[in-house]
């Protein structure tokens, strides 16, 4: 465990909790893509099946349970508890266009052709693109609440920190996982445009709004 890995995990945790708190405090999930959140719940579910088969460390297990719990709680808030505030009309990205190709790719390109390994690969690939419905929704409405942009920044930062962690691990441990690295690069690249807007607008006290 190096400092980039740890701060990456914490950044991910901050993102997830921030979103949950925002929805809870405002009693509203307006501006949040339910489809992205369902996909993140699917990502955690398919990746953390090893909770039952493989014990790594208390830290590892506890974080997995927190991610899973928060992710399901978020989906519950969006589709059940605060359903009335869910902006379904603007959440129009077709999730099947991501899930089906990603599922096919996980079958074709994986480390090992076993159920758990294919599901793990699926989760890595799906995570890399799961934010697209959310970014699409912001493009469509042309704006995002500032707290939502903090969430997105922390979520994007997490994978960027993991990229540095992988470079570190390659040099100091000789460890590398090509599937995770390629997907992690794709995932980080998808946030680049958003990072630019976040730094130039939100950090200067302006609301994130796109030109019409």
């Amino acid at each position: 465990m190096n400092v980039f890995r740890l701060t990456g995990d914490l950044s991910h945790l901050v993102a997830i909790i921030l979103l949950l708190l925002k929805i809870w405090k405002t009693r509203s999930c307006a501006g949040i893509s339910g489809k992205s959140q369902v996909m993140f719940a699917l990502v955690f579910t398919t990746r953390y099946l090893d909770l039952f088969t493989n014990f790594i460390s208390p830290y590892n297990s506890v974080m997995k349970v927190i991610y899973l719990g928060c992710s399901y709680a978020t989906v519950y808030m969006i589709y059940m508890k605060f359903k009335a505030s869910y902006d379904g009309n603007h959440d129009t990205f077709r999730a099947e266009f991501l899930i089906i190709p990603v599922g096919g790719l996980a079958f074709l390109v994986n480390h090992e052709f076993t159920p758990l390994e294919i599901l793990w690969t699926f989760s890595i690939y799906l995570e890399s693109v799961a934010i697209l419905p959310q970014l699409f929704m912001i493009t469509k409405t042309g704006e995002a609440e500032t707290i939502t942009t903090h969430y997105l920044f922390a979520l994007g930062l997490y994978r960027a920190l993991y990229l540095i962690n992988w470079i570190w691990r390659y040099y100091f441990e000789g460890f590398f996982d090509l599937i995770a690295i390629v997907a992690g690069c794709v995932q980080t690249i998808l946030y680049c445009d958003f990072f630019y807007l976040y730094i130039t607008k939100v950090l200067h006290g302006k609301k994130l709004s796109l030109p019409a």
């Binding site: 493989n54 460390s57 993991y162 996982d177």
Partner: peptide
Amino acid sequence: LCSSTEKDEL
């Protein structure tokens, strides 16, 4: 190519 069966990352 490293296949990591023991996945310590989250």
